[in-house]
Design a protein around this nucleic acid. Structure first.
Lengths: 228, 228
DNA sequence: TTACTCTTTAATGCATACATTAAAGTATGC
DNA sequence: GCATACTTTAATGTATGCATTAAAGAGTAA
């Protein structure tokens, strides 16, 4: 599930459909963090038998999203500010690595258009004060950066964490100051990549993520989001 | 499987036994990289029915160790030098993070004895020219460092990659020069942690892993280990 | 031969049955 | 009332059966 290109059968297979469906339910808040759910219950809800649900639960457990506790149900793992700190720490390192690698790649083989596009979109969103649009573009920037880094495992790991980050960010989106500094950072990273300066790309992105993470965690704590 | 403390039921359950058993078979070389295996075949081999084997395969797939290809069998994923480079890049960043975090922790809460012990063991192994003992102690050093870093997700990710690294290192253990430089690096990291110098710990460990990784990859390529 | 279609084979995905056993509930003794 | 032993319940872990369908093989025409 984490690794490898999605084979087409995964779309047809109930097991993988269950993985996607459960992820969706979790992040839509329909399966709330900390709640327990019996295999039978979820199976009925998804309109399939226990087998594929069970398989999906095990895969989601391997991804750290749920915990399978025999006879007590499948628990949707809550994410505390401490968890979010862990996640941000990892994203900071791996994305900074990706930025450095993206800058090291031969200029000819790089297509920075998506990166540029996402920055433009953030720019527009900033001007029209559309925070959701900004957040969407920001997410595109980060995932495209990781893609340019060219490390499939980094892509897999960061993608796995993306959903949880998105949820935390959604909660604090309107509490934080306007992301003007972020915007400068993004431009700085792009420029460093374009000019092939790997260490600058790494450094700028690293401090960008570090600051953004610190702010997010502080907001979560301030607003007493002890679990989400 | 990746995350969370191992509940006791996992030892009893055939599914989790199958995960461990399959891992063992893979790294013992009994299931060679690139080979395909039908669910039925593995089930018979492990003395259980297809169900737990199937579940184990899905969990191992989530960990990136195998690929489940319907009707073609469970494929043991080969690891190329490029894959090993990806893995080392990630380990470099995450272990360097762990070193920094370990150095930042209050001195009173740190127990560096295991770290010291592993360095002493490496020292002894170096003198008696016992490379396997050195490699074992080295692995203990790295895993203990990650533990001290205090990020459970980093622990999970690095643990997941440890087996694959071990295999690659085993192949090159007797080809590389004596690990004298490594030894200095380890001492340097320990001293930086002890004195609470997070940035030094990070920097030294980062360059240590970078160099060790570059050497390993070069050896793999030299000796034409295109997949392992 | 090669390309194409049809048939056969068998591995899988899923549903289901059932034994096991943890947890909840009940009864008993103090 | 409270703790302990016993009974009941029901969720799980695993085996198994079967329909589906990809892949292999056979047959046919060029």
């Amino acid at each position: 599930m984490i690794f490898g290109p999605p084979n087409d059968f995964r779309e047809k297979s109930n097991s993988y459909r269950a993985v996607g469906e459960l992820r969706r339910l979790i992040f839509a808040g329909e399966l709330s963090p900390g709640s327990d759910h019996l295999e039978t219950e979820l199976a009925e809800r998804l309109g399939m038998s226990r087998t594929p649900v069970r398989e999906a639960a095990l895969m989601l457990e391997a991804q750290g999203l749920v915990e399978v506790r025999p006879r007590r149900g499948i628990r949707i793992l809550p994410v505390s500010p401490e968890d979010m700190q862990e996640i941000y720490d990892i994203l900071t390192e791996l994305e900074a690595l990706a930025a450095a690698r993206a800058a090291s790649a031969p200029a000819g083989e790089r297509d920075l258009s998506l990166l540029e596009r996402s920055i433009e979109d953030m720019d527009a969103a900033l001007k029209s004060e559309d925070r959701q649009a900004w957040a969407d573009a920001d997410e595109r920037f980060h995932s495209e950066l990781v893609r340019l880094g060219g490390n499939r495992r980094v892509e897999a790991i960061t993608a796995m964490m993306a959903d949880q980050v998105r949820r935390a960010r959604a909660m604090t989106l309107y509490m934080r100051p306007a992301p003007v500094k972020s915007h400068e950072d993004h431009r700085g990273v792009l420029e460093a990549i374009r000019s092939g300066d790997a260490e600058a790309a790494r450094r700028i992105h690293h401090s960008h993520r570090t600051e953004a993470g610190a702010m997010l965690i502080a907001l979560l704590r301030q607003h007493r989001f002890h679990q989400l």
